[in-house]
Amino acid sequence: MNDPKKIRLALTTLGVVFAALVISFSLDLWGRVEPVRQLPLVDEEFLQPQTWRRSYADLVKKEDEDELLAFSCYECHEEGKKLELTYDKDNHVVVPDEHENIVMGHGSHGRNNDCFNCHNSENLLVLQTRDGHSLKFEESTQLCGSCHGPTHRDWEHGSHGRTSGYWDRSKGEYHKQDCVNCHNPHSPKFPQRAPAPRPNHLRVNPVATAHFGESNTH
């Protein structure tokens, strides 16, 4: 085996093999899994902890004077004048065009369809319970609770409704949302909403991924 030609041949072959290895390693030609598919980031809207709506009481608390005006009843209504309601033939209250954003849908029975079940007919800046108590807009939870007793009780315990801040009250502020910060008082049932994106499972095999996308109904 001392033939210099053979040695040279062997060394050259080895050299070629090593050179090929260098190229393959530096270009990652093998031994690497395919790159991870970059998934789109979820819309920031789904990360926000704000409530879905803001109550009238919260809105008028705003510092901005211009925005306040839009919420003052007596910009349009005449102060001290008793309001008259009109009803259609099915005995549903007719919402005037000025209040077109109000959709009456309180209760599946459809019986709570009178504005003055909750609003005061003589003073539009206050609410009133069915037993005649006048309540400020900030006290609306009591108005809701005057009919929805058990839910109000649960809300007081914290088992109904949204809370945020500190569970440990000694460490920081604890905040409980009023009914109307989540429920629209005119149609309190939660409307349907678009869900956040479904999970994208780790699948290396693209065929499996393709099938996976369709198996949505099992």
Binding site: H157, R162, W167, R193
Partner: peptide, 29 residues
């Protein structure tokens, strides 16, 4: 002392969290 992130973001208020050793906590109730 804060609530978990999943609780604070829940728009329906379905999630409740707290100290079970405290009889006044939401979860105890």
């Amino acid at each position: 002392g804060r609530y978990p992130a999943c609780l604070e973001v829940c728009p329906a208020g379905a999630r409740k969290f707290g100290n079970i050793l405290d009889p006044e906590s939401e979860v105890s109730k």
